[in-house]
Design a protein around this nucleic acid. Structure first.
Lengths: 121, 121
DNA sequence: TCTTTGTATTACTCCATCTAATACAATAAA
DNA sequence: TTTATTGTATTAGATGGAGTAATACAAAGA
């Protein structure tokens, strides 16, 4: 899986890595049991520090998306906990995004089409 | 209009103010020409610094949502520019939110219902 | 003249992010 | 056993954004 970092973004690097892996899981590009690159390999590949990648992996581990095992590296978890609900933070963000889109004249259907595209199925 | 700040949020205060005003415009709670509280009044009311509120107003002004006039204060703009498209940053955020919801087992319809609710109409 | 408006300026503290250099424990491979 | 590779902990430093604080300014209404 290819991970791209936007240097201009104000989103922290470790967060960008985390987000792309989460989106990879959602899209099916990453499946349960899949091996992730080592922290050193990914850091070298992206020209960033080892600890930055480690921080992304720690976050993913805390959230239950991956499991790390010394010497086995990091892999996508087989049983990812399903809360079944959208976090309050994501609700706020969604409301903000929809509001901005509405004000700038984006039709509702266009937003819903995006949701369908990103959700898949 | 009541503005509430979440102390625990990692979203900057000036950004939270900006977001709530934007959402107020979208929902219709704030209409074109409406007067916003003065920077000093809002700062005093929320127990924060004057410059923090000013920073929020500057951001809203730059984005074209409000207009500020010395001695007249800040008001919602009458003609807000309609780009007609969703910014790339908001697209990325939307994709992340939808992905996280999907993984945690939230049905697609539930997301779409939220979009309908936030968009209105 | 006095007051109120947004805003500019300067200085300071605080904290998150990122980098850097090491080191450690665990484990597969040689 | 030895070696190499894994994630991770530690410590230190640099950088920048966020927020506060005190002050001052220009504009305009009362």
């Amino acid at each position: 899986m290819i991970i791209r970092i936007d240097e201009l973004s104000d989103v922290p690097i470790y967060q960008q890595i985390r987000n792309q892996i989460v989106m990879g899981i959602s899209s099916g590009e990453l499946e349960a049991g899949d091996q992730l690159p080592t922290v050193r390999a990914l850091a070298l590949d992206m020209g960033i520090n080892t600890m930055t990648v480690s921080k992304a992996y720690q976050l993913l581990k805390t959230e239950g998306y991956i499991m790390t095992d010394r010497k086995n590296g990091a892999r996508i978890r087989t049983e990812i906990e399903k809360q079944g609900r959208i976090s309050s933070g994501n609700r706020s963000e969604l409301k903000r995004i929809v509001s901005e889109a509405r004000i700038s004249g984006v039709p509702k259907d266009e937003i819903i089409n995006l949701v369908n595209e990103y959700y898949g199925g």
